[in-house]
Design a protein around this nucleic acid. Structure first.
Lengths: 409, 409
DNA sequence: GTCGCTCCCGTGACTCGCACAACAAATTCC
DNA sequence: GGAATTTGTTGTGCGAGTCACGGGAGCGAC
């Protein structure tokens, strides 16, 4: 966390350097490639300071100098040299644990997916079995990593409640997991010791969309993930809203209609009983075994049925509660909700407009994910990369080099 | 905002001094009085650095040195000199605009109310009339201010939606105001030019309770203000959740029961139709003209009626949605909800337990305001003081000295 | 009562990070 | 082709925090 968040502490010169170095890297990471002149403008530091910071990143092997970017700017003056993420720079492993499959990717700075692999996951699988499968995918994915590149950490996206202190999976309903220390399981299966971060899939979707998706430039956004259950990842003030334990964003169990259908949480009429995957599947007579692929089912749908339109209205009305509560600038509909919105967008908009207060309504935009179905995966990469932006030197110090041979040995 | 919030910028040495000076002041402000040794421990800076910072605050006339605090610490060793807010230090004007009265106070650093005054406000009053009344109260309140003390700014708590960019009151339903620039009105009536900050009363209640009320030590709290309407102020990660426009926290219009009573917002079954002041007044046959004093009416209540108990359940059930969504550590019930909770706390707890998910439920505590009915007033003081914690030197530079004679002239 | 221990204050030298200024380099514009 | 513009590079200087030393103020034991 940067100075503001770890509020109360003082700042010394060491912290300044760390912070500035991390901030430069963060900018290069999110912009892909940029000129040193842009960096000086954005960060408000002196040319020579930026030169020093960039030089340090280069000597760390994180970034490399490029020839001036073509057509970056018109006008007179010496063109500014570019800064780009190095080819053999550090990378992370991102894991997106879905309800029916696991996706694993090796992701470099800049959010570039360097390699990916996936495998089906059985919903009744034990955690250690899933952990072994994920570990195998990780071995695949690091197989071609350059020996010079260092592994900074592993980020895992989980469809469930994750305790923020220690990353314990408190509950993953669709995997039927309770209190599973999945990070430890994966590390044990790999025989490695690297930092592992876990977080909720919707939270990570929000993070990724905020960094490089449909939420770029917004500091107030909500990402709703439709992924069997319905959850929300919330970014406010540019930061993830985690809550005391890390369980914030459980919007699926918002009270929607006290006279509604019973919910698996034990209550009645939760929002999820209207817009959850099982509810939608029932409404469109989709066989239960295809619920996990509801997005594809919906994509192949032709004309929306009245039941589906009612679902759209319910989605919009529920979103109105969120809009009233959070006053977001952007609401991103991920997972099957994306497909649903493509079908019944008008109803969703109408439901939202009907129920939201005028003031928050006027500034909100509904959007589709800019990263497709990779939002959570890239979000997992982001949390794993996070230490690099806090303190690049320290993060590289603990990073693991030549992981391939370590895994072989 | 401090370094983290204005993310993306670089930090230079000037910023570091500002930040550290502000942070020292913030600590002294919230602790009241503390020793330099404590400051070094909390801030993690060197003793000599703290000495320098404290010395600067003293030479600015903000703090003063005290003899070692009695019994602050047992054990051997030379006792550490204390730091305390100066007697003639800077102050702010806090205004709590209620639906039936306005409270104005002169508040010093440390949250000390130095002087206060109030006057009734007619709910059908024009904004300029209210502004004139508030200005008169301000004149009263600064009458005895020492000439050496400087006025840093004015903070105003508003029962309505306030746009965060410019402090425009977009809507204050109980005052029947639309798009009122109340800050400008008050300044014009005073003939002064000082910084004015406006914010929603619930947001400010949350802020004050977080700083020096029931939410000290918590960075995840929700303050629910029952004040004719129902609103929430949300602190997450130690910061106010404002939303894109500043309208976050409108929990009164959460969907509660689609088959419920019509709400003044045009919808049906908002939470406010169950737990709003008018709903409760109707449930206990309280005459409409006493709705603004509902807290007193409830306090004089003996045994809760079944209708009131049902309201308690509804309160708890609605809180469950908030708890699921935000995973707070503390939920503070302010305004008449405090009185309500004292009457039907069991029903509220039960409603919450029934509807909240286990994980967020286990870490949440319901609490009553630690500042009584002054939460919003002190919150207004806090936002007005905020510039001092960002940059004490700059804030004092723009502060107004000898306000009394300026107002006279 | 005195001594030692502990913790703190105050001062000066030191390190480190960024800003600034001057010069060189690379374009664009006229 | 020269002037203007913008950027990279280098060396100097300032400022902020750190560190080390000497001294002071209570506490506790003998």
């Amino acid at each position: 966390m940067s100075p503001q968040r770890r509020s109360g502490l003082g700042t010394n010169q060491e912290a300044i350097r760390r912070h500035n170095l991390g901030t430069v890297l963060r900018h290069v990471h999110s912009a892909g490639e940029m000129s040193r002149a842009e960096l000086t403008a954005i960060m408000g530091l002196n040319r020579s300071t930026i030169a020093g910071l960039v030089g340090e990143l280069e000597s760390l092997g994180i970034s490399e100098r490029t020839t001036p970017v073509e057509g970056a700017r018109q006008g007179a003056g010496r063109p500014s040299a570019g800064v780009r993420i190095a080819e053999d720079g550090p990378y992370v492993i991102a894991v997106d644990l879905g309800v029916d499959r696991a996706v694993v990717a090796r992701v470099g700075l800049g959010g570039r997916i360097l390699q990916r692999a996936q495998a089906p996951v059985h919903s009744d699988g034990e955690a250690w079995q899933v952990g072994a499968a994920v570990a195998a995918l990780i071995r695949t994915v690091v197989a071609d990593a350059p020996a010079a590149s260092a592994l900074v950490g592993i980020g895992i996206s989980v469809p469930g409640l994750v305790r923020r202190n220690d990353g314990l999976i408190r509950l993953a309903p669709n995997l039927e997991w309770h209190d599973v220390s999945f990070g430890g399981i994966v590390l044990a299966a790999l025989g490695l010791d690297v930092p592992v971060s876990l977080a909720n899939d919707a939270d990570l979707g929000a993070l990724a969309e905020h960094t490089r998706g449909a939420g770029v430039g917004t500091d107030e956004l909500i990402y709703i993930s439709g992924n069997v259950g319905v959850g929300a990842g919330i970014i406010t003030g540019g930061h993830r809203l985690e809550g005391a334990g890390g369980y914030a964003g459980e919007v699926g169990h918002l009270r929607f209609d006290p006279a509604g259908r019973p919910c698996h949480c034990g209550n009645r009429g939760c929002w999820e009983t209207e817009v959850g995957a099982h509810a939608i599947a029932a409404a469109i007579q989709c066989p239960p075994d295809k619920v996990a692929q509801l997005d594809e089912v919906l994509d192949s749908f032709g004309k929306p049925s009245p039941a589906l339109r009612a679902t759209g209205t319910a989605l919009g009305q529920g979103l109105a509660s969120l809009v009233n509560m959070f006053n977001p600038q952007t609401v991103i509909l991920g997972g099957y909700l994306r497909s649903l919105y493509l079908l019944v967008g008008a109803e969703v908009d109408a439901g939202l407009a009907e129920r939201a207060l005028p003031a928050p309504l006027e500034s909100v935009t509904l959007a589709l994910p800019g990263l497709g179905s990779d939002s959570s995966l890239l979000g997992a990469a982001e949390i794993a990369l996070e230490p690099l932006f806090i303190d690049p030197v320290a993060a590289l110090g603990t990073a693991l080099e030549d992981v391939r041979s370590r895994l072989a040995g």
